[in-house]
Design a protein around this nucleic acid. Structure first.
Length: 473
RNA sequence: GGUCCCAUCGUCUAGCGGUCUAGGACGUGGCCCUCUCAAGGCUAAAACACGGGUUCGAUUCCCGUUGGGACCGCCA
């Protein structure tokens, strides 16, 4: 048969899509695309008390924002309880599973006791050989795990990992309330959805032998496994809120580009020689488990920021402009619904895009182009809007009032002439003008700024600056 | 505690027995460019955890030690 690669991302809706989940989804998708296979999205919501529809939406929103589109699904395990039930029945019928009448409280107490005594907290198998039901108790169902021999996980990233079956205890596959548990559903679904490769976090490696035994019990072929190294925080513990933003949506709101985030994430554990920046097309072409590392990686926000800037710089001003508008609204630079000449905005964006690391920064830096009245930064004003600069600014005002050519070349000619006349360096004029135009001391090249601002605004601000100096003196 | 995984600059990593005076990237320092800020260019400091083997030769293979991580739920 033609072995079409089929992989899945199977988050549980108990939180937002986070950085680690996004990377798992990415690797799955890359693997599928690399082989022209199928990427399935499956929601693992068998824990009814912790799963919510809001989080399902949030996960889908995150995947969509990142552009991690899937081919099948989203499937919800909640909709498939009948299927799991039939698999459990089959196991019971074949004697491969049995009813367990121990209460959750008893089990918990025994576990605590074992932990306290320094023993391995494992189910002791006391209900294993019960022949008669215990009246008045609705039982859970346990899988009868083989007690001797070994189970080998042949991992695509780690090679063969051997587990002694004596370490595996009889896990619950059906809760006493009739709902199935993870280890059962994951196997049933991967079989049912004909998953060929299970690509997931390292934290699942220890569950794998149990799942393999379930495959064996059902008589199904075991899929390929690839356990990805974890993503750690700066203190080398599992990435969590303590380390800052972990939700994918938080990065969107902070002004990161989805492709930049993806590019950063793929390099956590995967590499292709010395290359740092990849297009999605390159990633799907190059991706292989051969160059996925085994060691956990520390999440480094600094490098993500750099990558984001690389992506911002590489975009066309027009595309960037479209993305920055919502941030202009959020920063109150643009009123909701207020329209703007997009071609003009793109010109402004072009002057700033190599100066912004995030869309938020870009939006903020756009302020002086867009708003009518700018405010002078007090320190900038003191330093550059003073008696010394006044004659320069006045000359410039006069010259520009008669100047129709606001191109870089045209403006440069005017500036050069004034600077020569006064025998000063360009900076002596450029800085006061910069403060007059932007309110601050940092901006794109002064000719670019004036070009974007246009004659009217330029003269208006020049006059305001001159007035401010006069008033002071 | 048990089981399993992992180990190259601060961080992400290249390296798949000799090419290693260990390469790249982020970050950090310096210089250049320059109307400011960036961008860009050049440059500097910075790592093979330790101990045994195997081998003519180990960063690379094996074992141990140490250190880190994950899992041990009627969570996923």
């Amino acid at each position: 048969m033609s072995d079409t690669v089929r992989v899945r991302f199977a988050p549980s809706p108990t939180g937002h899509l986070h950085i680690g989940g996004a990377r798992t989804a990415l690797f799955n998708r890359l693997y599928a695309r690399h082989f022209g296979g199928v990427f399935v999205l499956r929601i693992e919501d068998t824990d009814r008390s912790r799963s919510t529809d809001e989080y399902i939406d949030a996960i889908i929103e995150g995947m969509t924002w990142l552009g991690l589109d899937w081919d099948e699904g989203p499937f919800r395990q909640m909709d498939r309880f009948d299927i799991y039930r039939s698999y459990v029945d089959r196991l019971i019928r074949e004697g491969k599973a049995y009813y367990c009448y121990c209460s959750a409280e008893e089990l918990e107490a025994r576990r605590q006791k074992a932990m306290a005594e320094g023993k391995t907290p494992a189910y002791d198998g006391r209900c294993r050989n019960l022949t008669e039901p215990v009246p008045g108790i609705t039982p859970a169902v346990r899988f009868r795990m083989p007690q001797i021999g070994q189970t080998v996980v042949d991992d695509l990233i780690r090679g063969k990992v051997v587990f002694d079956n004596s370490q595996l205890d009889d896990l619950i596959i059906l809760r006493s309330d009739g709902t199935p548990t993870y280890n059962l559903t994951v196997v049933v679904d991967d079989v049912d959805m004909r998953i060929t490769h299970v690509i997931r976090g390292d934290d699942h490696l220890n569950n794998t032998p149990k799942q393999i035994q379930l495959y064996n019990a059902f008589g199904y072929e075991v899929p390929g496994f690839a356990h990805l190294p974890m993503i750690l925080g700066s203190d080398k513990t599992r990435l969590s809120k303590r380390h800052g933003a972990t939700s994918v949506m938080a990065y969107r709101d902070m002004g990161y580009l989805p492709d930049a985030l993806l590019n950063y994430l793929v390099r956590l554990g995967w590499s292709y020689g010395d290359q740092e920046v990849f297009t999605m097309e390159e990633l799907t072409r190059y991706f292989s488990f051969d160059n996925v590392g085994k060691a956990a990686a520390v999440f480094n926000p600094e490098k993500l920021l750099w990558l984001n800037q690389q992506y911002i710089m590489a975009m066309t001003p027009e595309a960037l402009t479209g993305m920055v508008v919502p941030f202009l609204v959020k920063e109150n630079i643009l009123a909701e619904g207020q329209s703007l000449d997009m071609a003009w905005l793109a010109r402004a964006v072009k002057t700033l895009q190599e100066r912004a690391k995030t869309l938020v920064e870009l939006a903020k830096s756009l302020r002086y182009y867009i708003v009518e009245d700018i405010e002078f930064d007090p320190r900038a004003k003191d330093k550059f809007l003073n008696e010394k600069g006044l004659p320069l600014l006045e000359d410039l005002n006069t010259e520009l009032a008669a100047q129709a050519d606001f191109t870089h070349e045209g403006l440069e000619r005017v500036f050069k002439a004034i600077v020569e006349k006064h025998g000063v360096k360009l900076g002596a004029l450029a800085q006061p003008v910069r403060v007059a135009m932007t309110g601050g001391t940092e901006s794109p090249g002064i000719f670019e700024v004036l070009g974007v601002l246009g004659k009217d605004k330029t003269l208006k601000r020049l006059n305001k600056a001159i007035a401010a100096i006069d008033q002071k003196g």
